[in-house]
Amino acid sequence: MTAGLTRIGAVRPAANAAPPALEVKGLSHAYGPRPALQDIALRIMPGDFTVLLGPNGAGKSTLFALVTRLFDAQGGSIRIFGEELAARPGLALARLGVVFQQSTLDPDLSVRENLLYGAALHGMARAEARHRAAQELERIGMAERAGDAVRSLSGGQRRRVEIARALLTRPALLLLDEPTVGLDAGSRSFLLGHVRRLCREEGLAVLWATHLIDEVTEEARVVVLHAGRVRASGSLPEILVAAGGAPDLREAFARLTEERREGSTA
């Protein structure tokens, strides 16, 4: 009985204490002797557009691997809407949508088949999945390409399809790992605009990893990751303050990632 009650309590928290979409505390991971992440903390609320900013090799991909439970972290905790990922991965993953750095579409299959496969993995009924696939493709302007093989699409179009697939199951938290790599300016701004609109209009929580400073928008929250540590996090002005009063983000980013290098050599 009590077990049943606590379980319901854990799943449906009181409305005034909505849990963060993603809460990471004290997260550490190492490959052999080489630490990849050290004592990472971050928190994303519903509706937040959070940019995870870091140079290549900062640990962004490791963080994504841990949050999507590709493998378990060696230390710390990850909670998705209050659910501990390691303890109840099913509950946490059910509310998660992911766009990986590498393309993960099946090039031989059609756009629609790729979306339906993703939906089936989440246990969605086929009729509903078809309906949702049509909706999401419409939203990204790819409805006419539904029957085409993914192989025939451009890089930008593939990215759009991957976002459509990630959104098909109506996730409340969307993770994107360098989603604009290799795309032209038009595709980049389309993706960024689409995802930001989802945050604004649908309360989607987003973690957008990138090494490109110009993808940080005015209202974005920023987490600067470097050499496996969070160097600064907060709103844009807060980041500038944390970097010792930098005039702009470019300068702040340079200082935050430079400082660490000196620190680590000292």
């Binding site: 999507t68 590709l70 099913g90 993953l93 992911v98 990986f100 993960t104 993995l121």
Partner: peptide, 10 residues
């Protein structure tokens, strides 16, 4: 990378 899609299933 397509295995990662499989493994994010709940």
């Amino acid at each position: 990378g397509s295995m990662r899609v499989l493994l994010t299933s709940p």
